[in-house]
Amino acid sequence: MAILRAVETESGVMVENAYARIDTISGSKNQIAITLNYYLSQSHYTDGKSYVHQEVYSYEPEVEGESDNFIKQGYEHIKSLSGFSKAIDA
């Protein structure tokens, strides 16, 4: 699972349709931290190239019964943020 989104790297380069994926996740039932890494494309990711931008987010996970896994919940949280309204699933 991943999303496509425009992002400006720290060096000021704009990457349209960057391939963004949650690469790390840690936490507890009270708080989950996720690292969203951006790659130039999905093929850059699969070829083992370095990410071009990184962001860290946190959310309170659902842990009851039939809840989605923490990674899926992480993507849902990210897509709910205002800066991600134009992001699309990849």
Rank of each mutant, 00 (worst) to 15 (best):
M1G: 15
M1Y: 14
A2W: 08
I3V: 14
L4E: 12
R5V: 07
A6C: 08
V7W: 00
V7H: 04
V7F: 04
E8M: 00
E8A: 00
E8D: 03
T9H: 04
T9C: 07
T9M: 02
E10G: 14
E10A: 14
G12N: 04
G12S: 02
G12R: 00
G12Q: 01
M14W: 10
V15D: 02
E16H: 12
E16W: 08
E16I: 09
E16K: 13
N17I: 05
A18F: 05
A18Y: 02
Y19E: 04
R21Y: 14
I22C: 10
D23I: 10
D23L: 11
T24N: 15
I25S: 06
I25A: 06
S26V: 06
S26I: 05
G27K: 06
G27C: 08
G27L: 09
S28P: 00
S28C: 02
K29C: 09
N30C: 03
N30T: 13
N30M: 09
N30Y: 09
Q31Y: 08
Q31W: 07
I32C: 08
I32Q: 09
I32D: 01
I32P: 05
I32N: 07
I34P: 01
I34M: 03
T35L: 04
T35K: 12
L36H: 01
L36K: 04
Y38T: 00
Y38P: 01
Y39M: 02
Y39F: 08
Y39L: 02
L40Y: 08
L40F: 03
H44L: 04
H44E: 10
Y45D: 03
T46C: 06
D47N: 13
D47P: 01
S50G: 09
S50M: 10
S50Y: 09
S50A: 13
Y51G: 15
V52E: 03
V52K: 06
V52T: 07
H53A: 14
H53F: 15
Q54S: 15
E55G: 07
E55Y: 09
V56S: 15
Y57S: 05
Y57C: 06
Y57T: 07
S58I: 05
S58Q: 11
S58W: 08
Y59Q: 01
E60M: 14
E60I: 13
E60A: 13
P61F: 06
E62T: 15
E66Y: 09
E66T: 10
E66L: 10
E66S: 10
S67H: 15
S67D: 13
D68M: 13
D68S: 14
N69V: 11
N69W: 10
F70G: 05
F70P: 06
I71Q: 11
I71D: 06
K72S: 11
K72N: 12
K72M: 15
Q73S: 01
Q73F: 00
Q73N: 03
Q73I: 02
G74V: 01
Y75D: 01
Y75F: 02
Y75V: 00
Y75N: 01
H77Y: 14
H77I: 06
I78G: 00
I78F: 00
S80P: 04
S82W: 09
G83R: 05
F84I: 03
S85E: 13
K86E: 13
K86I: 09
A87D: 03
A87H: 03
I88F: 07
D89R: 04
A90H: 02
